[in-house]
Simulated assay, not measured.
Amino acid sequence: MLVEIWSDIACPWCYIGKARFEKGLAEFPHRDRVRVVHRSFELDPNRAKGDTGSVVDMLARKYGRTREEALAMEEHVASNARAEGLGYRTEGRDHGSTFDIHRLLHLARARGRQDELLNLAYRTNFADERSVFDDEVLIALAVEAGLDEAEARAVLAGDAYADEVRADEREAAELGANGVPFFVFDRRYGVSGGQPAELFTQALEQAWKGRETVPATADDAPACDADGACEVPEAAR
């Protein structure tokens, strides 16, 4: 069975949702027969390479909050991440264009190392003190994931896999994905948002039974939308 996951490295609910999905997958009896493919979705596709800024400052501007309130919003998301055993820094993180990261993830997929690179990119962006928007950091992550350094450098220096990234994004739009994470199970069942692990197990079981296609469900789960806004529960605003 094929599971496709549209996500962006800048999306905290994608980071959390991946961990929850993997916990749900671990409870699925046929997990050894599931193939997972990660697909590209940029929250800010028009952002220029090199245009980076503080995540906290961005949140304050986006939601019209003070910096202290934006930090509280980040802390609420961090508590969800930590509950899944994930590291999460609330200060000192930046954000920028994720296009090159997606291109490298396509290279990693072609070399059978996609999940390894994605995990490293998430950890670096949300938990480490390095910036994932630095080319040398990306190269180091690619090598750590098992990719050839020269090949990774060649991808970043040119436009390799650009078409693949855009094709993923077009397909997401065709499927009606207005935000991420967005999970599609064997093209039969769709789930949006960072749902609890139990729901992912149920989705896997339903798709395995071969039921007819149903609409994407669970719209109340936290997610990041196509305009780059990441949902924060009211209590944290």
Rank of each mutant, 00 (worst) to 15 (best):
D8W: 08
W13P: 00
Y15F: 13
R31K: 15
R33E: 11
R33N: 12
V34E: 10
V34I: 15
E42N: 14
R47E: 01
D57C: 06
D57V: 13
L59F: 14
R61K: 15
Y63E: 13
R65G: 05
R67P: 07
R67S: 14
E69P: 04
A70Q: 06
A70E: 05
A72V: 13
M73K: 04
M73S: 12
E75D: 14
V77G: 00
S79V: 11
S79I: 07
R82F: 11
L86S: 09
R93G: 00
T98K: 03
D100N: 03
I101Q: 01
H102A: 07
L104H: 03
H106E: 08
A108I: 01
G112N: 13
R113Q: 14
R113C: 04
R113A: 11
L117I: 03
A121C: 05
A121K: 00
N125I: 04
A127C: 11
A127K: 10
E129P: 05
I139G: 00
I139Q: 00
L141V: 06
A154T: 14
V155G: 00
D168S: 11
E171S: 07
A172G: 07
A172T: 06
E174N: 12
E174H: 07
G176T: 09
G176Y: 06
G176Q: 12
N178H: 12
P181W: 01
F183Q: 04
F183C: 06
V184E: 05
V191L: 15
S192V: 02
G193L: 01
Q195L: 03
P196Y: 05
A197K: 08
T201N: 13
A203R: 01
Q206A: 13
A207C: 12
K209W: 06
K209I: 03
R211K: 10
A216K: 11
A218R: 09
D219N: 12
D219T: 13
A221D: 02
P222A: 03
A223C: 08
C224P: 04
P233D: 03
